[in-house]
Design a protein around this nucleic acid. Structure first.
Length: 448
RNA sequence: GGCCCCAUCGUCUAGAGGCCUAGGACACCACCCUCUCAAGGUGGAGACACGGGUUCGAAUCCCGUUGGGGCUGCCA
């Protein structure tokens, strides 16, 4: 083992909240580092002082933590390292490898950084840059096709290109794992590294892009890209990370939904796919549902805390004990945490909510709603109040009218819970209690 | 337009010349289970973009075409 210990870096720019595509890049860097015992460096690319929003950095860090991604070094802020980039840019300029340009992009004579003037690195006319990308294979850019990159802005700040070239070397980065959208900037950075005296290249791995249904790169403008939004919509961090890992990579044994440590064990950079991957909400839902069902009940209850805290019931109406009892039945039915309140709201509301479509279906179009409710009212008055007895009771009421239980339970379900869909009815009634149940059945009967 | 990247079911992918009458997963359809809805079970439909090569043999290698995407900013 004479090779360098791998060092990777995730380098977000603080211009917005963490983007799912960026989160995926971070995840792949992290997976690689953890898989090979390497070092994960977090670097904040805040070279553009005009667009950079420092207040967003904390959110980005917390997003990574939420996903379960940690880092060994950093965050290193490029905004605190301008001296390094300034020295590099000044040196290239002094050596004649870069030149000054004015606001109209016209070359200006001079060999030192000058206020109000930007600096472009002069890419040679001849030759080409070639490198082997772990994912793409051999890539070659003719110098004639590479434009002279701006490395220093006229406002006295560096661009990411020079910062990249300097920092990747300075931080000893051995593997550059990032989105394919950065592929065409790679030859520029390689030129800069070489001009600064560093000819040994890091291993490059350009990840396939995440795209929308029209197969365009996921964009802040038109797509749901904020990682935070997924958290707010009730996706579990484990499910999100698990799903993200599946975009551009797949475990050799085909088992897709699994703990991250198992993914780390199987992750190999060279197994990453080349083509863009569609961010499929449907599959995310499936993965999330699997993760939710796999939670220990107590854990599930705990994670429901936030959505339950703002449920559609009066403040103080929430009953943690009652919820804990019905939680197992809810857990196996929801796909996101956000679905939970809709399954239990009737338990905490004073009266049954009324879902018009459900009412129409069970009370208007369904058979014998009035008769069934009357029968239930009478029978519920003194039936033993437990799920089993209630089940037998309603089954008998239905049979008396020639109805199967499926039909017979519908009016009661809607009367009590407001909807045709919900947790198992008899357990629900048992939990609600005789008085509240009778009250709701009476109210529904009166409303018919 | 120029440069670069990509191309297996609708989607995510397996496949690294014969194991492929192309496998799995999501979604979809049917059936089973069933107090609703889910979950679960069983089955089904569904793809190697096209054209040339190379080879005894190609989804797999090469070339071209077509299609899609990225970049083309004193953003990253």
């Amino acid at each position: 083992m004479t090779s360098r210990a791998p060092r990777v870096r995730f380098a977000p720019a603080p211009t917005g909240s963490l983007h799912v595509g960026s989160a995926r890049s971070a995840l792949f860097n992290w997976l690689y580092a953890r898989a090979v015992g390497g070092t994960m460096v977090l670097r904040i690319e805040d070279t553009d002082t005009e667009r950079n929003k420092p207040e967003l950095i904390d959110g980005i860090l917390r997003s990574l933590e939420w996903l379960g991604i940690d880092w060994d070094e950093g965050p290193i802020h490029q905004s605190e390292r301008f001296d390094l980039y300034r020295d590099a840019a000044a040196r290239l300029l002094a050596e004649g490898r870069a030149y000054l340009v004015d606001a109209d992009d016209q070359e200006v004579v001079g060999d030192r950084l000058t206020a109000g003037l930007a600096v472009r690195y002069r890419v040679p006319d001849e030759g080409a840059i070639e490198f082997d990308d772990v994912i793409r294979g051999h890539v070659r850019f003719e110098n004639a096709n590479v434009e002279d990159p701006v490395i220093w802005r006229s406002n006295g700040t560096p661009t990411f290109l020079i910062a990249n070239a300097v920092d990747d070397v300075d931080l000893g980065i051995t593997h550059v794992i990032r989105g394919e959208d950065l592929l065409s900037s790679t030859p520029k950075v390689i030129h800069l590294r070489a001009a600064l005296g560093h000819t040994v290249l890091p291993v490059y791995a350009h990840l396939p892009l995440l795209v929308n249904e029209k197969r365009q790169k996921l964009s802040k403008r038109r797509d749901d890209v904020a990682l935070w939004d997924y958290r707010d919509q009730g996706y579990l961090p484990e499910a999100m990370a698990n799903y993200l890992a599946l975009l551009g990579w797949g475990p050799p044994d085909g088992v897709e939904v699994r703990p991250m440590d198992e993914i780390i064990e199987r992750f190999r950079l060279e197994d990453i796919t080349k083509s863009a991957a569609f961010f499929d909400r449907k599959k995310l839902d499936h993965v999330n549902g699997e993760w939710i069902r796999g939670l220990a009940v107590g854990d599930f209850v705990e994670r429901c805390g936030p959505v339950l805290a703002e449920g559609p019931w009066p403040p103080g109406a929430f009953d943690a004990t009652a919820f804990a009892e019905i939680a197992p039945l809810v857990q196996e039915r929801v796909t996101t945490l956000d679905d939970v309140p809709g399954y239990v709201d009737w338990l905490f509301l004073d009266q049954a909510p009324i879902d018009d479509a459900s009412w129409e279906k069970a009370m208007v179009k369904g058979p014998d709603a009035a008769g069934l409710l009357d029968d239930a009212l009478a029978a519920f008055a003194d039936v033993a109040w437990d799920a089993e007895s209630l089940h037998a009771c309603l089954l008998a009421l239905g049979e008396a009218r020639g109805l199967k239980l499926g039909k017979a339970q519908a009016p009661v379900r809607v009367a009590v819970t407001g909807r045709t869909v919900g947790p198992p009815l008899f357990e629900s009634l048992a939990l609600l209690g005789r008085e509240r149940t009778l009250e709701r059945v009476r109210a529904a009967r009166a409303r018919l």
